[in-house]
Amino acid sequence: MKIAFTSNGKDLDSIIDARFGRCEYILIYDDLSEEIEIIENNDSAADAHGAGPKTAHKLYNSNIDVLITGNGPGGNAAKVLERSKMEIYIGAANKPIKDALDLYKENKLEKL
C-alpha cells in the first residue's frame, strides 16, 4: 500500500506540512517494501492559482492509496481528488511523519 504525506523533507523524520497544494515535497511510503519515494512539489510555489489541483494531479498519477496531511485539500483539489479512490486523513500537521504513520496504523487519524 502506498501512503503519501505532505512533507517539508525527504525522510520519515520530516515534519508534515499543513498545506496541501503548496507543500514542498510529497513523501510516498510503501509499507510492504518499506521504500520511500519523493515527489518534488516546489514548482507549485510559482503558481498564483491552481497549486491544489496540480498537486492532486501528481498524487493521482502516483497511484496513492492513502494521503495523510494537515489542513486537507481545498475546494478545487478536493473536486479533482474525487476522481481517485484515495483515502484522505487530515489533522496530522507539524507531526513527524513516522509518528503520523503510527497514528494511522492505530486508526487515530481523522478521515476526511
Partner: peptide
C-alpha cells in the same frame, strides 16, 4: 492548471 487529465477523464476547473 484549469484543465487536467485523469486517465480517460478531463477535469475542467472554470474558476482557474
Amino acid at each position: 492548471n484549469a484543465v487536467l487529465q485523469f486517465g480517460n477523464f478531463i477535469s475542467v476547473l472554470p474558476e482557474l
